[in-house]
């Protein structure tokens, strides 16, 4: 990349909200979040095409999942304890309701759902899944705890007519 980077992620970009928003506080509406995501997505798609835009969102989600765990969860003794903390965090931050459906320790395969998802719950049926950001986010979360690279694929989404988003995760290089 040419030149020095200006936006390498740091929690400094989140800023001192108490100081910066003494009256409005640290909450905003989901519409605002989605407006941001889907306008950005629109521009990314126009600039790079749908597939690349999806990949970029995946990468951004991965970074978010990793950074969020680094800041709020930390590595845990056991995967179960980690999952419990992440579940609680996602509810606390109103990101979604994470539920593990299946965890195969020997093959490191996971099936999990996110209900009331921040990105897609309530969107009209589009005939395809839209939660690429969430896919990356979950991959980042899993890699943070296990130290192993995961590939995550959304198999059911609100936008495919389902009522909860379902993700399958497997070690990168293996079939999801």
């Amino acid at each position: 990349m040419a030149g020095e980077r200006q936006y390498e992620f740091s929690w400094d970009f989140i800023g001192d909200i108490a100081q910066g928003r003494p009256n409005l506080g640290n909450m905003t509406r989901i519409e605002v979040y989605r407006l941001f995501q889907y306008t950005l997505r629109d521009v990314l798609e126009q600039s790079y095409g749908t597939e690349e835009a999806d990949r970029l969102l995946y990468r951004a989600g991965f970074l978010a999942g990793t950074e969020l765990c680094k800041k709020f969860v930390g590595r845990c003794e056991s995967l179960e304890e980690f999952v419990k903390k992440v579940e609680a965090l996602l509810i606390d931050l109103k990101i979604g309701v994470l539920r593990i459906e299946e965890m195969q320790r020997d093959t490191a395969r996971f099936v999990l759902t996110v209900a009331e998802d921040l990105d897609c719950s309530g969107l009209p049926e589009a005939g395809h899944a839209v939660c690429n950001y969430d896919e990356g986010f979950i991959a980042g979360v899993l890699e943070f705890q296990t130290g192993r690279p995961f590939r995550v694929r959304e198999v059911d989404c609100w936008c495919t007519g389902d009522r909860t988003c379902r993700f399958e995760a497997a070690l990168a290089g293996e079939t999801v």
């Binding site: 179960e80 539920r99 593990i100 459906e101 299946e102 965890m103 099936v111 759902t113 209900a115 049926e125 005939g127 059911d156 609100w158 495919t160 007519g161 389902d162 009522r163 909860t164 379902r166």
Partner: peptide
């Protein structure tokens, strides 16, 4: 896919999650 099957998948997801939770209790 679709809303009706999607709703059933939601129920399936809940039941699968409960299975997982029950396994956690068993452990």
């Amino acid at each position: 896919r679709g809303v009706v099957i999607g709703a059933l998948k939601g129920l399936q997801a809940n039941l699968r999650h409960l299975t997982w939770q029950a396994q956690r209790i068993a452990s």
